[in-house]
Simulated scan of single mutants.
Amino acid sequence: METPTFPDPDVRLARLAAAVGLPAEWPPTEEFLDGLQRRTGLHVHDLMLVADLPLPETAWLFDETAGASSSLVSRSLALPADGRRLLRARARSLTAPAGTLAPWQPRPYERYPEGFGSLLLRMLALRNLNWSGTAKAMCLMSGVCKAASTIGAVGRGAKPLDAEMLDGFAATLGVPVAVLAGLTGVPHPSADGREPAPEVADTAGLIREIRHLTSDQERGLTAYADELGTD
């Protein structure tokens, strides 16, 4: 399978805009990015990565021992809609204590060449998901179960993106697979704009909402999800 070429930022944004029926703008205005965020489901920081725009330093502050655990992801997926709403509200109410977060320092193996695989992995790094965390969340949320090393190989360009991997990344990011198919140019047999299932979309939102929390706070949310599941 031939790996799609990695176009310039203006082309990448134009592809996303075309995928959701928006006229392209370059350079992108704040209003354009806001509209693209609403229609694609990607966060504005994801779009800034697509456009090679600098992100605020606070976007890269994490407790690297935290991130969405498989326990929290699985519990979120199993909750009814009201439970997921309460869990996300609890997550949004939390703030990491001062001094507990530090700037993300990518390891040598996380320094990727340009490409769509690396772009998607950097979006997930913005959610405090490393290769292992991505592999676990992806398996639970999409049924696409790959080794952490395979996730890394996609970032390095050693494994090309295909329709199956697009399904996995789309679910983990909480966006329609058509959005990623339009961005990457990877053919997908069902890239018809179908939205993620509600439990998948809510869990993807939760993953993003806890990105700046500590491991202790993440464990507390998992315990809260257990409580919600027994109500």
Rank of each mutant, 00 (worst) to 15 (best):
T3G: 01
T5P: 03
P7L: 05
D8K: 12
V11A: 14
V11H: 11
L13Y: 14
L16S: 07
L16I: 06
P23W: 12
E25N: 04
E25M: 08
P27A: 10
P27Q: 09
P28W: 11
T29K: 00
E31K: 12
D34C: 01
D34H: 11
D34P: 00
L36V: 10
L36N: 09
R39Y: 02
G41K: 00
H43E: 13
H45Q: 10
M48K: 15
V50A: 13
V50D: 12
P54A: 12
P54K: 08
P54C: 10
P54R: 06
P54G: 04
L55Y: 09
T58H: 14
A59N: 00
G67V: 12
G67I: 07
A68Q: 08
L72I: 03
S76E: 10
S76P: 09
L77A: 08
L79G: 02
P80F: 00
P80W: 04
R84I: 00
L87A: 01
L87I: 02
R88T: 08
A91Q: 02
R92N: 13
A96E: 07
L101I: 07
R107V: 06
P108W: 10
Y109I: 07
E110K: 02
R111L: 13
R111G: 03
Y112C: 06
Y112K: 09
P113N: 10
G115V: 05
G115N: 03
F116G: 07
L120C: 03
L121K: 01
R122D: 14
L126Q: 10
R127P: 04
N128P: 00
L129H: 13
L140S: 14
S142K: 03
V144K: 06
C145L: 07
S149Q: 13
G152F: 04
A153N: 08
A158G: 01
P160E: 07
D162V: 06
A163S: 14
A163Y: 14
M165E: 04
M165L: 15
F169A: 05
F169T: 04
A171D: 13
G174I: 05
V175S: 07
A178T: 01
A178P: 02
A178K: 10
L180C: 06
A181G: 12
G182A: 05
T184W: 09
P187K: 04
S190Y: 14
A191K: 05
D192W: 09
G193Y: 00
G193S: 03
E195T: 13
P196I: 02
A197G: 04
A197R: 15
E199V: 02
A201W: 08
T203C: 03
A204W: 11
G205S: 13
L206Q: 12
L213T: 05
L213F: 11
Q217L: 06
G220C: 02
Y224W: 14
A225T: 09
G229S: 09
